[in-house]
């Protein structure tokens, strides 16, 4: 029995000027149903390419991705994606942006039900009184909340987050993170989530496991580091908790070890240190 999301030895390269540029090589990853996994790595390490392959936006050159036993060939009906730069349609209000997703995903509902569902999704992220504003009239944090509401409004089983807080300032980032954590925990069935991030704290706050991405490109994945902290988690608790400190040390050590290591072809395998 394979994992819910099973990434098996995928590679991807883009044609650069003369030679092909390998972005991903032989990347494998398993995510169990209901798990929240963060892929953590530096900018330009091929994380976003990996996510877009998982989401079915890009096809891999080699290898395969299966979700719930079915090979990924396109965008799945039960998956939602949140992009780094909000990607809201500027000519629509917050409500209309969410409704676009609801109407497309749930065409069997009546207009009123679609509207109600979109409005509920916005209320859940605390934007109940801003539903008629255009993205240009919203702050960065509010825009990303609309994007999160849009993703959750269709009740997805799988959520792909591409640096969802990357464009936000540190203070806003924290509140939106809490919102996301609450939404992931509150829904009736567990949402399997893969998040791309370059922020260690964010990964620890939200994830069940952190997969460091190392030495990209071509990027390869390190061994998943479990984050066995009780939920709900708070930033304050993470800053001082002993367990969190250990996880942080492990993650940072993995990433810096990978950076210091001379680049070799093939997979860089990193063993989890049993003493931590």
């Amino acid at each position: 029995m394979s994992a819910f999301i099973d990434v098996h030895r995928i590679s991807k390269s883009f044609a650069a000027r003369r030679e092909a540029r390998h972005v991903l090589r032989d990347v494998s990853l398993q995510v169990e149903r209901g798990e929240f996994v963060s892929i953590l790595g530096a900018m330009g390490s091929g994380k976003s390419t990996l996510l877009s392959i998982l989401a079915g936006l890009t096809a891999p050159d080699a290898g395969r991705v299966t979700i719930d036993g079915a090979q990924v060939t396109g965008i799945r009906r039960d998956a939602a994606v949140v992009f780094q730069n909000y990607s809201l349609l500027p000519w629509f209000t917050a409500l209309e942006n969410v409704r676009l997703a609801v109407d497309a995903a749930l065409p069997d509902l009546t207009k009123d039900e679609q509207r109600a569902q979109a409005q509920r999704a916005l209320e859940q992220v605390g934007l109940g009184n801003a539903i008629h504003r255009r993205p240009s009239q919203l702050s960065g944090g509010m825009r990303q909340r609309v994007a999160i509401a849009r993703a959750f409004a269709t009740k997805p089983q799988i959520l792909f987050l591409d640096e969802p807080f990357g464009a936000l300032d540190a203070l806003t980032r924290e509140t939106v993170q809490q919102d996301l954590a609450r939404l992931c925990a509150a829904v009736d069935r567990p949402v399997t989530t893969v998040m791309i991030t370059n922020n260690v704290e964010e990964a620890i706050l939200l994830s069940d496991a952190i997969v460091p991405i190392v030495a990209g490109p071509p990027a390869t994945l390190g061994t998943p580091i479990p984050v066995a902290l009780p939920r709900p988690r708070s930033i304050a608790q993470l800053a001082h908790g002993e367990e969190a400190t250990l996880v942080r040390a492990h993650v940072v050590a993995t990433l810096t070890a990978a950076l210091g290591r001379p680049r070799r072809h093939g997979t860089v395998r990193l063993k989890a240190d049993p003493t931590i």
Binding site: I75, A80, S87, L89, W91, L100, A104, A105, R150
Partner: peptide, 24 residues
């Protein structure tokens, strides 16, 4: 391209994509 990606991940029908994304 981000807007086109949104249209793809929301699985919009091509008429919806045309009139609600491309034309505006």
């Amino acid at each position: 391209r981000d807007l086109m990606n949104v249209a793809r991940v929301l699985r919009l029908k091509w008429t919806t994509t045309l009139f609600k994304v491309i034309v505006p």
